[in-house]
Amino acid sequence: TFYNFIMGFQNDNTPFGILAEHVSEDKAFPRLEERHQVIRAYVMSNYTDHQLIETTNRAISLYMANL
C-alpha cells in the first residue's frame, strides 16, 4: 500500500520523511487504501500545508512508477 511505501521514509530528513511522520500520526489516514485517487483526495481534503500536499503528489507518482 501507499502507507507502507511512505513509512519506509520514516526518520529520513527529507520531504518524504516529513510526510511519513505526518501520515504515521494521522489516525484517520487510509492505511489500507491502494487507489492513489482516494489517497490524493484524502490529503487534499485533510491537509492544509501546501508543501505536504506537493510532497504527497510526488510520493504517489514515485509509488505508482514502482508498482
Rank of each mutant, 00 (worst) to 15 (best):
N66S: 14
E21Q: 15
R58H: 10
E21A: 15
R58F: 08
F5T: 00
H50N: 13
N13D: 12
D26E: 04
N46S: 09
L62W: 08
V43W: 03
Q37S: 12
D12S: 14
S45H: 09
N46M: 11
R31G: 03
A41H: 11
E33Q: 04
G8K: 13
T48P: 07
I39H: 01
S61C: 14
F5V: 01
I60K: 00
M7R: 05
Q10N: 08
P15V: 11
K27S: 11
D12I: 07
N4Y: 11
I60M: 07
I60G: 00
T48F: 10
M7D: 00
N13L: 07
D12W: 07
H50P: 15
P15N: 07
F2H: 00
I39V: 09
T56K: 02
Q51E: 13
T56G: 06
M44N: 10
M44I: 11
F2M: 02
D12C: 14
N57E: 15
I18A: 12
E21G: 12
H50I: 13
N46D: 03
T48I: 09
L67I: 11
F9P: 01
A59G: 03
M64S: 07
R31C: 06
M64G: 04
L67T: 11
A59H: 15
V43G: 01
A65K: 12
M64L: 15
P30H: 03
R40F: 12
G17C: 04
A41T: 09
G8A: 11
Y47D: 01
V23D: 05
Y3T: 01
H36C: 15
Q10F: 14
Y47C: 07
E21D: 12
F5M: 01
N66R: 11
I60N: 00
A28I: 05
I6F: 03
K27Y: 08
H36T: 15
T14A: 03
Y42D: 04
R58T: 07
D49A: 06
H36A: 15
T55P: 02
Q10L: 15
F29N: 03
L62Y: 06
Q51D: 13
L19W: 02
F9W: 06
Y63V: 02
D49N: 08
D12T: 14
P30C: 03
A59M: 09
E33P: 03
E25G: 14
N11Q: 08
F9I: 03
F16Q: 02
D26V: 14
T14F: 04
G17T: 04
H22P: 03
A65G: 09
A41L: 11
G17L: 05
L19T: 00
H50S: 13
N57K: 11
A20K: 06
E21F: 13
F16H: 02
M44G: 07
F29W: 05
A65P: 05
N13V: 06
R40Y: 11
L67H: 11
L19A: 01
S45A: 14
Y63G: 00
I18Y: 09
Y42N: 02
R58Q: 10
H36S: 13
I18S: 08
M7C: 05
P30S: 02
Q10A: 12
S24N: 12
S45E: 14
Q51R: 10
A28G: 13
A28W: 12
H36L: 15
A20G: 02
F5H: 00
K27D: 10
S61W: 12
E34L: 13
N4P: 01
L52H: 03
T14H: 06
F9C: 04
A65T: 09
D26Y: 06
S45L: 12
T14V: 03
S24I: 09
F16I: 05
R40I: 15
G8F: 08
G8R: 11
F2K: 01
H22G: 02
E33K: 03
I6D: 00
P30I: 06
D49R: 03
K27W: 07
S61P: 05
N66T: 14
N11L: 07
H22A: 11
S45Y: 07
Q51C: 12
H22L: 11
H50C: 11
A59P: 01
I53E: 04
E34A: 14
Y3F: 13
Y42C: 03
N57Y: 12
I60S: 00
I18N: 08
R31K: 10
A41Q: 13
N57M: 15
M64Y: 09
N46E: 06
D49V: 05
N11M: 08
V38L: 09
I39F: 05
L67A: 11
T14K: 03
I18C: 09
A41G: 06
M64C: 12
E34N: 14
I39G: 00
F29M: 04
A65W: 10
T48G: 08
S61M: 14
F16M: 10
Y3A: 00
P15W: 09
Q10D: 05
K27F: 08
T56D: 02
I53F: 05
P30N: 02
Y42T: 03
H36P: 15
D26H: 01
I60P: 00
E33Y: 02
E25T: 14
N46A: 08
Y63R: 01
D26I: 06
D12F: 11
H36I: 15
D26M: 05
Y63L: 07
R35Q: 09
Y63M: 08
A65I: 11
N13K: 11
E34P: 09
Y3G: 00
R31Y: 06
S24F: 12
H22F: 13
T56R: 02
V23A: 04
I6C: 02
T1H: 05
L62T: 05
Y3E: 00
S24Y: 13
T56L: 14
N13M: 07
D12K: 12
S45Q: 14
G8P: 02
A59F: 04
E25I: 11
M44A: 11
Q51Y: 11
D26G: 03
A65S: 11
E54C: 07
L67C: 12
L19F: 03
M7A: 04
T14C: 06
A20T: 03
H50F: 11
N11K: 10
V23W: 03
L62Q: 08
L52A: 02
N66G: 13
L19M: 04
R58A: 10
T1S: 13
F5I: 03
M64T: 09
Q51A: 12
V43P: 00
L32F: 13
S61A: 15
G17K: 06
L62E: 08
T14W: 03
R35C: 13
H22I: 13
R40T: 08
L52G: 00
T48W: 07
N4H: 11
Y47E: 01
A41W: 10
E33R: 03
E21H: 15
V23M: 09
F5Y: 07
L62V: 10
H50T: 13
Q51I: 13
N11P: 04
R58M: 11
I6R: 00
F16Y: 07
Y63H: 07
P15K: 06
P30Q: 02
N11G: 15
N4S: 13
N13H: 08
Q51L: 14
A20W: 08
M7W: 03
F5S: 00
A65E: 14
M64W: 08
N57A: 09
T1M: 04
H22T: 10
F29V: 02
R58D: 06
I39M: 01
M44S: 09
F16W: 05
S45F: 08
I53T: 04
E25C: 12
R31D: 02
